[in-house]
Design a protein around this nucleic acid. Sequence first.
DNA 1: ATGGCGTCCGTACCACAGTACGGAGTCAAG
DNA 2: CTTGACTCCGTACTGTGGTACGGACGCCAT
Lengths: 173, 173
Amino acid sequence: MRDLTIAKAAREAGVGVETIRFYERRGLIDQPMKPQGSGFRVYSPEQIKRIKFIRQAQQIGFSLHEIQELLSLRADPAADCSVVRSQAVAKLEDVNRKIDQLHHIGTALEALIAVCPGRGGLHVCTILDTLIDPAHSRVPSLAADGPLPAVPPKRKRQNGSIAANNHKQRRAL
Amino acid sequence: MRDLTIAKAAREAGVGVETIRFYERRGLIDQPMKPQGSGFRVYSPEQIKRIKFIRQAQQIGFSLHEIQELLSLRADPAADCSVVRSQAVAKLEDVNRKIDQLHHIGTALEALIAVCPGRGGLHVCTILDTLIDPAHSRVPSLAADGPLPAVPPKRKRQNGSIAANNHKQRRAL
DNA sequence: ATGGCGTCCGTACCACAGTACGGAGTCAAG
DNA sequence: CTTGACTCCGTACTGTGGTACGGACGCCAT
């Protein structure tokens, strides 16, 4: 794979041209070399890898900001390996938290689906009943009516997890 | 639990006052009765349950739009249970996909951390090298370089709207 | 009756992650 | 040498899910 202009690089990485420029503006990727005289960006395989990495990390639920932190550590010559390591550890914890959360959600959904008759009018649909009034449900996973994860922190938002990605697959349902 | 004014209802449901009004505007909840003469919203336990439902469904990964659909299904006597079910199934698949990806990254991070010397300059740090260039890593978990989900569908713009937005980044406060 | 919350409403603003547009320049094929 | 596709850049706009603000008014206890 040779160096590619932006449109081909975008195709290759599975993003839009504008997205690449957007990442560049955000400092997630460097502006690539523009070979002699040409004002056109030309992307090396490494740079395309980096874009793919960004997508991958995003898929997993990291925000662009988090990804930037990860990447900027790499660029810091003063950075100590232990810093990177502890970031990695923190990310791992993060990942594990996310997995836990998703497991919860998953089992809840499974339970709901298992109990749902799957046909007939809504008057026999237990899914919505359960969702709407978990306390009275025979499905325990959602009856744990515990304190919902408090309303997201004021001012600063760093979550962006599940719903944030949803607009991309909106038609997935 | 008696009927509550908006602030107490919000506390009870674990959201902000503005969020309730926001849900109302979005049509996710009805405006509650305002008892004789009073212009104040008063929320019944049922309505609070509905707000909690919205939060719960959000936790599960439904967007507000999807939740709205779900709720309007509930209001539609002609709606079929199987519709709701298949929505839930789709969400479950979604969740499982995310879990898979996270497991990938999780094991990868573990492997990376295990291989990382943990001290010294970045020139000896293997973590970032591997993250950014999975293909050349001795840690295989990240090398799975599969096809990334295609770039999200393009929307067409067809309305010169007068618009509510200067998304200029203004640093106030 | 008055002070201090609580609430009303509308509008503006925020962060995030892009997407779209337009006018100008560039490049490669015919 | 023209033409059409591609690229440049900056700015505006989008959708999602809220938050914040401010003036006016309601409610209740002292």
